[in-house]
Design a protein around this nucleic acid. Structure first.
Length: 484
DNA sequence: CGCTTTTGACCTGCGC
DNA sequence: GCGCAGGTCAAAAGCG
């Protein structure tokens, strides 16, 4: 919670409120009309109202501007008093009227504030609902894909029937190799025996079926990297991690830490955490592998996001994907709102999606290595997990526009078309991501409930952390101390 | 006592 | 073959 501005959540400037909100506010001003008693001074009602209308953003200032209407505003009075040097009696009156004006202004501001907050809440709720809807569809789609994939595997690979049901979530479609290996090797062996094949992809990949093998290797190596500003040693993702190593990496004074998921024995998921060399407030977390166990809701947010990211990356980077190898095309398709930032790993040893959560909504703030696919997103660390599903809800939808394997049209067609329209509208709004981030930020950071996350946010996001440094009894509603 | 972190050693891949 | 860098192991230490 450290770098969360303790804001009583006034909407950040990046949020573009619909016009009707402003109309509402103007109405309020009309109704208040706190100068009505002074209109007698000569200005017609119409003129006075016009003056107030124009002065909406900065009424005090504009009262002066409209002195041509001979309104007896406080400011005018003040002016004349100063000029004429009138008695203290009239000065008292002036002070009184000033007070009245200020009080009225304050009241107006307050009501505006309330209105804005309500609107924001409503908008956020709507967005959350949409995102939840989207996530549900995504999961259905993932399941279907996995089913398809599984049936293919059964045809192609060992028919030993030992295949474990596909995980609740898998990162990067990698389950083909890792999950099965993990499950097949049981827990008796050294855990890295399960994982060693993963590190020997070229050997695995030299099988005769070159295309398949290459794809498989690519999938196993898929990584999702999350860049986020955080003072904490790790970002919140809801899983339990155990540190198993630390290394100094070349070109970076900060050590790189290696973590392994400890939520289940033999879970092959690992992550690397390292601070950015250029900006040490930026934490780079790289996930690799897929969980072989169910995840708590809190972990689902990040997990489904990273898996979605990996899935997008992989489906887009596969040679079979309609020749969509052009990284820029892929990135633009995934993230139209951040196209200028988006690159995707084409030359990296393994395909890597980088989710850049370090940036303000204003893009181009951080040019980054070309082998990363990044997303601009103003945020705070505790919002990372919260933000990701939303981002990828959108991204996944965008992906569905070019990837042939999405959302079987016959399946949810009616549902989808409606949803698609809505999401499309959102997706084409360049401010959407920023606005969403800001809204989430203000909701979580500004007035989050003690058990933050589960009550209002359907996504259960960003509320738990397992940093490996303590006994995490999966209290899925307690924010990590890391954020404090 | 059980779990996690630390840290030096080891393994592996890659470029020269 | 050698050196380098990334990644992992595992014994020791720390912690609750």
């Amino acid at each position: 919670m450290e770098d969360q501005p303790s804001s009583p959540p006034p909407p950040p400037p990046t949020i573009q409120f619909p016009v009707n909100l402003m109309k509402d506010k103007r109405k309020v001003i009309d109704e208040m009309d706190f100068f009505s008693d002074k209109k007698d001074g000569g200005a017609s009602t119409e003129e006075a109202n016009t003056a107030v209308h124009f002065s909406e953003p900065n009424s005090m200032l504009n009262f002066n501007v409209n002195t041509g209407l001979h309104l007896l505003t406080a400011a005018n009075t003040n002016q004349s008093i100063v000029e004429d040097g009138v008695s203290s009696n009239s000065e008292g009156k002036r002070a009184k009227s000033e007070l009245v004006v200020l009080q009225a202004e304050l009241e107006r501001m307050n009501s505006e504030n309330r209105g804005l907050r309500e609107s924001l809440n409503q908008a956020t709720n709507n967005i959350n609902n949409l995102q939840m809807h989207l996530m549900t569809l995504m999961q259905q789609q993932q399941q279907q894909q996995q089913n398809d994939h599984d049936s293919e595997e059964h045809k192609n690979v060992n028919g030993n029937g030992l295949m474990v049901p596909r995980q609740f979530m898998d990162l990067g479609l990698a389950a083909v190799g890792e999950a099965d290996e993990a499950s097949l090797s049981t827990s008796e062996g050294r855990s890295d025996q399960d994982q060693s094949p993963e590190n020997k992809v070229p050997k695995v990949g030299h099988s005769p079926k070159s295309t398949e093998a290459t794809t498989d290797a690519t999938m196993r190596k898929a990584r999702v990297s999350v860049r986020a500003r955080s003072e904490a040693p790790m970002i919140t993702d809801g899983c339990q991690w155990r540190k198993y190593g630390q290394k100094m990496a070349k070109g970076n004074p900060c050590p790189r830490a290696y973590y392994r998921c400890t939520m289940a024995a033999g879970c092959p998921v690992r992550k690397q955490v390292q601070r950015c060399a250029e900006d040490k407030t930026i934490l780079i977390t790289t996930y690799e592998g897929n969980h072989n166990h169910p995840l708590p809701p809190a972990a689902m947010a990040m997990a489904s996001t990273t898996s979605s990211a990996a899935r997008m990356l992989l489906s887009g980077s596969m040679p079979s994907a309609d020749g969509l190898m052009n990284p820029n095309f892929l990135a633009r398709t995934l993230l139209p709102c951040s196209s200028s930032m988006a690159t995707i790993s084409a030359s990296a040893p393994f395909p890597t999606v980088t989710l850049d959560l370090t940036q303000s909504p204003n893009p181009l703030q951080f040019p980054r290595p070309s082998n990363q696919f990044s997303m601009p997103f103003g945020n705070t660390p505790q919002n990372i997990a919260a933000a990701l599903p939303q981002i990828f809800g959108q991204a996944l939808y965008n992906q569905s526009k070019f990837s042939g394997l999405q959302m079987s049209q016959d399946m949810h067609q009616g549902q989808n078309s409606q949803l698609s329209d809505t999401v499309n509208a959102l997706a084409t709004n360049p401010n959407f991501t920023a606005a969403l981030a800001a809204a989430i930020t203000s909701l979580i950071g500004g007035g989050s409930s003690p058990n933050n996350g589960n009550d209002n946010n359907n996504t259960d996001v960003g509320t738990t952390t397992s940093n490996g440094s303590g006994n995490h009894k999966l209290n899925s509603s307690s924010p990590s101390k890391l954020w404090n």
